[in-house]
Computed example of a mutant assay.
Amino acid sequence: MAELDPAEQIKELSSTLESIEAVLDLDAKRTEIEQLREQSADPELWNDQENAQKVTRRLSFLESEITRVEGIRGRLDDIGVLFELAAAEDDADTLAEARTELESLRRDIGELEVRTLLSGPYDEREALVSINAQAGGVDAADWTQMLQRMYLRWAERHGYPTEIYETSYAEEAGIKSTTFVVRAPFAYGMLRGEHGTHRLVRISPFDNQSRRQTSFAGVDVVPVVEQSDHIDIDESELRIDVYRSSGPGGQGVNTTDSAVRITHLPTGIVVACQNERSQLQNRATAMSVLQAKLLERKRQEEEAVLAELRGEATSSWGTQMRNYVLHPYQSVKDVRTGMESGNTGAVLDGQIDEFIDAEIRWMRSQERDQQATG
């Protein structure tokens, strides 16, 4: 099939961008930015540190989103001039530059289009991520730590603040579990597709016979709770343990029993926090993590009831969802979406946007199918 004329491609991309701009409602976002700027200029704002940080994070996110869309629109306006210049001067180098920029614009507009698919009830929330070592012994603990680094690097690449609430170190190497929050609007919408079992195949660095080892880690992603959420927690149904925070190899971090572990007896959900010096602060944070997990559990139960009433099978996204093979070949592949990359080093260094975008598109298509049959 013949390649479209550059002018036609630009026209097509411009039309797509117009649709994206309409869905994102940039005028409404500009109005909200002005309101947030007024709030941030109020010296009284910082009397409530948590609310002040929420306001400033939201303001920063909206400003960067507006800048991103306007930047793409400006580049799209300029690309036509670049093609005209290349044609007028019969300049092969300028033409190559214009084609490269056109492909870059196509990719960037595609990524922006994915953002418009984040329309779930909790998608615009921050994300609470928990990772737990599963089968595989010391390799699974090491794999859990590799996954923690992958997600933290992904957040760092995007400028998203993170805060580690708890890390339980394994005795030999790696970590048994970790919980951290990604403090960015739509972090939950972006990361919720990562929920499930991640499988690693490699030559074990802990096996003196250099045998191939398969290990597993479970990733759990839930939305951060907000004041409007209502979750009743009966204190009599909680077991609260305090202990001393520990570091790699079991070494003590704090000299006081400031870390807190809370077990919700009816569900068996266990949460912990050890990042603060104060036991009271750790308890408050652990309670917010428990609330988030119970909120997600409640949402899943309500979805299951609705699906049963409609005579549907509930979609289980919490199964094996991605394979990372480092031996005998190099490959990372999503089980559900089919997205694949041979650059395992880049993926493990946090370059997972292609996988996240594919997951968002896949989940949205699943939700549309469910709605169509409902």
Rank of each mutant, 00 (worst) to 15 (best):
E3R: 15
K11N: 13
E12F: 10
S14M: 09
L17F: 10
S19Q: 14
A22I: 06
D25H: 11
L26V: 14
K29E: 13
I33D: 05
Q39E: 13
S40Y: 05
A41Q: 12
D42H: 07
D42T: 03
W46V: 09
F61R: 08
E70C: 02
G74N: 15
G80A: 15
F83T: 01
E84T: 08
A88Q: 14
A88K: 11
A88T: 11
E89N: 09
E89Q: 13
E89V: 01
D90M: 02
A92N: 09
A96E: 14
R99Y: 01
R115T: 05
T116F: 02
Y122R: 13
D123T: 02
L128M: 12
D139C: 03
W143P: 03
T144M: 00
W154Y: 11
W154C: 02
G159C: 05
G159M: 01
E163I: 05
E166C: 03
E172D: 12
T179C: 10
V182P: 00
R183V: 09
R192L: 00
E194Y: 01
E194W: 04
H195L: 04
H195I: 03
T197V: 15
L200E: 00
I203K: 10
S210E: 12
R212I: 14
F216C: 04
G218D: 09
V222L: 01
V222P: 01
E226S: 09
Q227P: 00
D234W: 04
E235D: 14
E235W: 05
S236C: 05
E237M: 11
R239W: 00
R244V: 10
R244N: 06
P248K: 09
G252N: 13
R261Q: 10
T263E: 11
T267E: 12
T267N: 05
G268R: 07
I269V: 13
A272S: 13
Q274C: 09
E276I: 01
E276G: 03
S278W: 04
S278T: 04
N282A: 05
L290T: 03
L294G: 01
E302L: 10
T314M: 08
S315G: 00
G318R: 10
H327P: 01
P328H: 08
M339H: 15
S341Q: 11
N343M: 08
A346Y: 09
L348V: 09
D357M: 07
A358R: 05
Q370S: 13
